[in-house]
Every structure is written in structure tokens, then in C-alpha cells.
Amino acid sequence: MKRTLTALLLSLVSTLPLADTLDDAKASGKLTLAVANEIPYGYLSSDGEAKGEAPEIALRTLKALGIDNVEVLVTEFGSLIPGLKAGRFDVIAAGMYINPKRCEQILFSNPTYTIGEGFLVKTGNPLTLTGYNDIKTQPDLKLGVMAGAVEFGYAKDFGIALDQIVTLPDYPSGVAALKAGRVDALAGTVLTMAELGKKSDAVELAQPFEDLVIDGDKVNGYGGFGFRRGDEGLRDAFNTQLAAFIGSEEHLALVEPYGFGAHTLPGDVTTAQLCQP
């Protein structure tokens, strides 16, 4: 009898609604964001100020929702989804690409931008690397990718051998590996690679660069904000604000310093479409 009652109580508890993060945040005025310290998507400046496309939009959006006290934490990109699910922060504000695999784990806002791929190479591009095919067709070459980022899947799906793909914890480690010759190119979004190229005379953005095409489709990533399952209220309120903001003059002025603009607007693409397998 006790076992039956215990099982019944556990069943009832499991069906109770989770705490409403939006209501709690409105009541307290507090919320926590996570970034991966990746310029220009989401990072902390040298004085600890939140910068980048995602934090700028998030802070503006949360303020419109009555949430002014926002803490911004830095974590490795590969730890963003596990950290969100574990409750260590409330929103991922790292420009994370929306894709079906991630949609199985967390909720996403509608996208705020779209962007293509790029390589970081040694200055002068001595190996003349202009796209993923150059890595695929030269088995001795190594391609660096960031742990948890989509580029590992892109490289694998394109047909690059697994022993050619080197996973690194973050982009500074990737740049170090490129300089040391442990990888021949570092893959990422073109904005990130361009930004990394500005920081050292030893590396540069590979130009020209061939569009990445997988199964006949040009690959463009669409980035948005991540939320825990159960926080549909927060996600929906966020989306309502984004719908009236993305593409406005205020939005473009906010993100243009980071290299975004009218050319990176996501158009009519929705998260529902991006989450479809």
C-alpha cells in the first residue's frame, strides 16, 4: 500500500507545473544569461560589460519585459545547453544556431540573424584553402572546430574524414592550434573568423571562400536564444518583443557595430521550420 501511495505521489509531483521563470523574473527583476565569450556573438569586455549581438538584443528585450537586473555568465560553448538544463542560468545569449538536434533538448526563440561559414588560415593562406572541399580532398590536412559547435557536423556531413577533424575547447585554443600547425584551418562563422583574424598578424580570414553546400543545399546558420523546456512563457514573451524589433532601425543600429545588419536579417524563417528534421 505504501509503495502504491508513494508511486501515486511521485506521479502527481511529476505532473505539477514547473516554476514560471518569467513570473519569477518579473517579480524579482532578475535573470541570468550565458555567453560563450565569442566575438561578435556574445562576450564580456575587459571591464566586464556584456557585449555582442545576442546580449545587446537580450538586455533590450528583457528591459521591455520589466527585467532590469541581468547577470551575464561566461561558459564554454559546449557547456551552454547542459548548463541551461541544469538551471545554472536562464537564457543562452550566445548566437547559438537553431537546429533539430538542439531543438530536442531546449526551446529557441525565433532567429535574429543568418550567416554563412568561413575558415581562419595562416596569413597568406599558404595552402590556398578556399572551402571544405579543400580539406576533404587532401587527407593529410586537419580542420579545427570548436567543441559543441555545428562545424563538426558540417565537416562530417560534407564527407571529411573524422581523423581530419580536431575538436578544440574554444576559439583561442583553435587559433593557438592553427599557429602551431596542429590544424591547417579553423572553421566557424565568417564573422567569428574575420574577428579572430583582426587580432593577430599570423592568421587571417580565408578569401575567397566557397559556400558550404551539403546535399545540394547551401548551408546558412540561423541564430537565436535558448530557453529551458517548461519556460515557454518566457520564450513566447521574448518572441513577441523580437517580432516588433528585428529589422527595425533601432535593431540595426544596435547590431551594426558587431558586423550584423540588413544583410544578416533572417527574413521569414522561423524556429518551427529550423527545428524540423
Rank of each mutant, 00 (worst) to 15 (best):
A25T: 07
G224P: 00
T114L: 14
G116R: 11
S11L: 13
V203A: 10
V190D: 06
K198F: 07
L8Q: 09
I115R: 12
G83H: 08
D217P: 00
G226P: 00
G174E: 09
A272F: 02
G221Y: 11
K179S: 08
L80R: 03
Y171T: 06
G181P: 09
L18S: 11
A253H: 04
E49K: 15
I135S: 12
G230H: 02
L62W: 05
P126I: 11
V190P: 01
N69V: 08
A272R: 05
V35K: 07
L84S: 00
A36D: 10
P139Y: 12
G267P: 02
A19D: 07
F119T: 02
G116V: 11
I67F: 11
F260M: 14
R235H: 05
E49Q: 14
P257I: 06
E250P: 09
A161Q: 12
L205D: 08
A36R: 03
T32G: 04
N110T: 06
G267Q: 10
E249K: 15
I160A: 09
S11M: 12
D201H: 09
K156S: 04
R102Y: 01
V203C: 06
G124Y: 01
S46R: 14
L265I: 08
I165G: 06
G233T: 11
G131D: 06
V13Y: 11
V70Y: 05
L18P: 00
L65T: 04
A176F: 05
G153T: 11
